[in-house]
Design a binder for these strands. Structure first.
Lengths: 204, 204
DNA sequence: GTAGAAGCGGACCCGGAGTCCGCATTCTAA
DNA sequence: TTAGAATGCGGACTCCGGGTCCGCTTCTAC
């Protein structure tokens, strides 16, 4: 009845490939430098094996990405505060985005590889859909906050991998500073104190 | 002493290529479908000519992009309100981002091509640098707004081409609605009543 | 042990970016 | 106007990486 377990050499090779790819992406200058042949070679495996296990480049990247992100996803969906559902909405949004940022800081090259070359558009990946709808749901719990759908997109855009890479890598912004800036920014977006008169927008 | 004018066939061909590329990118499903050979053929020109004139794919995209964006850049740098320097900072930020969004809505495929395949990272392109520093400068004129550098990045990220494409193309969000949402979002970021700072913004 | 399913691997194919170089066009000077 | 040089033209060609194919090996169920 069980859906056919995979052969143990297949499982072993799959792990070998994941580990090898992980190492390669962590060390490389730019994700584009790593070819599928490189990964296969580093894993001590043929290209055929690699493609059989992951379909294509995007599939490999996705598998890596999701394996790494899994703990965070769980923590957000069912963990304790400040990430879990019990957290007050505002704090939770800040915490989630901070967790996402930290994740991208820790896995810069990998996430970069996925978001840029992984698929035509990162927005088509279904994991983006998950994060977005989750964030939108939380935003909707904040009164006086309209357009939660767009807001979720915009907030997620602030943690885009290539931006993070640019700031952390090129501009040498220290991680802690970046986290503080993001937190500050998110807080500002969510602040929306008592609906203040729009006249203020032109003043000053 | 004058820096050698280019031959007139060269100039003519350059224009032909730009026009052809423009048309192709406007009509295509995805920018990746358009090959350099396609562009050359459509322009009635050899590949050699194309590469001589624009160096590489990224160069062609950049040339197209900058030609299109030029009017907006001028309007922002030295035009009348609401884009020009005479505008009050808050309104100007909103206007500039709106202009950028409109531009991307009108030139979706082209901008998409540039931002995704154009160069390793859109943040390395020097035109990004220009927009960012311009926006930062305006943000700095708004009192009680800290982190203008990061804020500028985050706001620009909200108008990323692939996000715009996703919303306008996939999700069928009408342009007007998107503009309204962006304007609303930007306004919220800039609103920042007196910093009602929660202690938790700590870190750094 | 044996049959055959599942998996292996690397030679191979395909398509696109970018190069090269003999020929054509344009410019310059007399 | 014309000769010669400089610039530009174009498409065949190279290079390279993603992805496929298929004869062979290894595992597993019986």
């Amino acid at each position: 009845m069980s859906e056919r377990r995979s052969r143990k050499d297949a499982a072993r090779n799959r792990e070998a490939v994941l580990a090898a790819a992980d190492a390669l992406f962590a060390r490389c200058e730019s994700p584009a430098d790593i070819t599928m042949a490189d990964v296969a070679a580093a894993a001590g495996v043929g290209k055929g094996t690699l493609f059989r296990a992951f379909d294509d480049r995007a599939g490999l990247l996705r598998a890596l990405y999701e394996a790494r992100l899994e703990p965070i996803r769980e923590a957000v969906e069912a963990g304790p505060p400040p990430l879990g559902p019990a957290t007050p909405p505002r704090d939770r949004v800040v915490a989630v985005l901070d967790a996402l940022l930290c994740f991208k800081l820790d896995n810069r090259r990998l996430v970069l590889a996925l978001e840029e070359g992984g698929s035509p558009s990162p927005y088509r990946a279904e994991h983006y859909e998950r994060w977005h709808s989750m964030l939108r749901a939380v935003l909707e719990q904040i009164p006086a906050l309209t357009d939660s759908d767009f807001t979720a997109h915009a907030l997620l855009a602030a943690t885009r991998a290539d931006l993070v890479e640019h700031l952390a890598g090129e501009k040498r912004v220290p991680p802690e500073r970046m986290r503080a800036q993001l937190a500050n920014y998110v807080a500002r977006v969510l602040a929306s104190g008592p609906p203040q008169d729009p006249a203020r927008l032109s003043a000053e």
